[in-house]
Computed example of a mutant assay.
Amino acid sequence: MLRVTKSLNNRRFSVVENASGLSDARTVFHYEVEGDAVWGTYKGGHIRMGNQVGRITGPDTIELLYQCITTDGEIRAGWSRGTVGVDEVGRTTLNFVWGWLSGANGGGESSYVEVDA
């Protein structure tokens, strides 16, 4: 749990790959962690605003529920399971498998990398 907390708490991430989703390189995710609880906000690109809440499930894994309103005024919600890692230059990475629960069908995989505040 400590490794995930140190890797995510008060850190920001942008999209590296998300072929099936709404978020893109213009979307910034900001995470907070307290104990085993994870939450955050995201916006940018096609996302007007969004939030997420979840929990740490292992030494390098999390699960989240998320919801957003798009720039087109659509409301969507979904789930994701992710792995926290580190890339070749030492930046924290996130890799998710996700799916829609409301507002759309399907799902996919996505990857994110830490960005400077």
Rank of each mutant, 00 (worst) to 15 (best):
L101K: 00
N10H: 08
R91N: 15
G21C: 08
I75Y: 14
Y112H: 14
V86Y: 02
V38L: 08
V28F: 05
R48G: 12
G90Q: 06
W39D: 07
L65C: 05
V84A: 00
R48Y: 09
Y42G: 01
G82E: 07
F13K: 08
E63R: 08
A37V: 15
D116M: 06
G78N: 07
E63T: 14
D87A: 06
G44M: 05
S14N: 13
E34N: 14
L94F: 03
G103R: 04
S20Y: 05
G50M: 04
D24Y: 00
M49H: 12
T61V: 04
E88M: 00
L101S: 10
G108P: 01
V113M: 04
A19E: 14
G58L: 07
G108E: 02
E63P: 02
A77G: 11
T83S: 11
T27E: 04
S23H: 10
N18V: 11
S7A: 15
W100F: 13
A104Q: 11
R48M: 13
E17C: 08
W98C: 07
V16K: 10
L22P: 04
G108S: 01
V84N: 02
E63F: 01
R11S: 08
D36V: 15
T57H: 03
N18D: 15
S7L: 10
G103E: 07
G21Q: 09
V86K: 13
T5S: 15
N9V: 10
G50V: 08
A37D: 15
Q67E: 13
G99M: 12
A25I: 05
N95W: 00
S14A: 13
E114M: 01
S102Y: 13
W100T: 08
R26I: 03
E32Q: 15
E109H: 09
W39T: 13
N51G: 12
E109T: 15
I69F: 03
I56S: 04
E74W: 06
Q52H: 09
H46S: 15
V97C: 02
G106A: 07
V113W: 02
T41C: 00
Y42L: 07
D72W: 01
R81L: 10
V33W: 05
M49S: 12
E109C: 10
I69R: 07
S14P: 00
A77M: 08
F96V: 07
T93H: 07
K6P: 01
S80M: 09
E17P: 03
Q52M: 10
V38C: 06
A104W: 08
G78I: 04
V84W: 04
Y66H: 08
D72H: 06
